[in-house]
């Protein structure tokens, strides 16, 4: 990590359905005094759709963002959204390993007079907090005592697979460690990397909702009072459709939060600036658990 911090790539979700992720992330990094500079005029990462339509275009979208990072003199992009993170990370990998993909990307960058992006790295906030700040330092900086329920840490898919830099693909534990450092107990959640189905809730609705019902019911069965995620799509799916499940007789109403919301709050961040009002499910619990009173958890 350089003194200038990181170039921040929000991605489309953090400006819409995942607004609470951006708000809490910015507040957390402000509290930690790690500077973030937004990537100038960034474009959409293409998510899973671009790869399904045209490979060259899919890698070009990320290449433009990487190129802007090189132009801005930053060598580390932080991408909080799992889809954005993976597309950027995969672009670095595939452009290096496949000459046919490299040829397409280079032609695109040349035509638009964009710079080559050698040396640019892609990072995720979970791994930055774990590696650069560290569990010990976070524990020391904690100023509020967690009063909420046990947490099921849900890692989802694309942040931990197929690359293992954010956390290991099998039984990732870094988010659990960060939550414990902030004073919040976590459960042993066996489905922590089982996919939420991504955009399936919007396309083949019943299938998408089924996947999420399985995840939610298992978390509750294991005694979790709350689910914490690192991806805007996971949070969206788990949070949005609980009402629909209740209408079918499934007794479920638990908060689904971003790990940055819990950390920003625990580290004494401004309670009005971490997007707590944007949650749909588990409202009563959120209002009970989160208050602005300071109580040193570790004297």
């Amino acid at each position: 990590m350089s003194a200038n911090g990181f170039l921040y790539f929000p991605g489309c979700s953090l400006r819409a359905t995942g607004a609470a992720y951006e708000e809490s992330l910015l507040e957390l990094f402000r509290v930690l005094a790690i500077p973030l500079t937004e990537l100038d005029d960034w474009n959409c990462c293409g998510a899973t759709s671009y790869m399904a339509v045209d490979e060259g275009s899919a890698f070009l979208l990320s290449s433009r963002n990487l190129s802007i990072a090189a132009e801005m003199g930053g060598h580390e992009i932080m991408a909080p959204c799992a889809a954005c993170y993976l597309v950027l990370r995969k672009t670095l990998d595939y452009v290096e390993h496949y000459p046919e993909i490299r040829a397409k990307v280079e032609a695109g960058l040349r035509a638009a007079e964009l710079k080559a992006f050698t040396g640019v790295k892609v990072r995720h906030p979970l791994e930055i907090l774990y590696n650069e700040v560290g569990v010990k330092a976070l524990k020391q900086k904690t100023t509020r005592k967690w009063k909420g329920g046990k947490i099921a840490c849900y890692y989802g898919c694309q942040a931990v697979r197929p690359y293992d830099e954010v956390d290991r693909p099998h039984n990732p534990m870094r988010m659990d460690e960060l939550m414990n450092a902030a004073g919040a107990p976590t459960i042993d959640y066996a489905l922590k990397t089982k996919c939420c189905g991504g955009s399936l809730t919007g396309t083949i609705h019943e299938v998408g909702v089924n996947l999420n019902e399985i995840l939610l019911r298992e978390a509750v069965r294991k005694g979790a009072g709350c689910i914490v995620t690192i991806c805007p799509l996971c949070q969206f799916n788990l949070d949005t459709y609980q009402g629909e499940m209740r209408a079918r007789g499934v007794a479920i109403d638990i908060p689904v939060l971003y790990f940055t919301q819990v950390l920003a709050w625990a580290l004494g961040g401004d309670i009005g600036k971490i997007g707590l009002k944007r949650s749909i499910s588990g409202r009563a619990a959120i209002e009970k658990w989160f208050s602005s009173e300071e109580a040193p958890a570790y004297a």
């Binding site: 359905t17 607004a19 005029d41 474009n43 060259g56 032609a107 638009a112 007079e113």
Partner: peptide, 28 residues
Amino acid sequence: RTGRISLKFEKIRKIRQLQKALDATKEV
């Protein structure tokens, strides 16, 4: 009602640059 759907449709400044680059990948 939780402010998670934006009615503002986002657009980047250098959209021509992006389109030019996208088109050039198809010529390879």
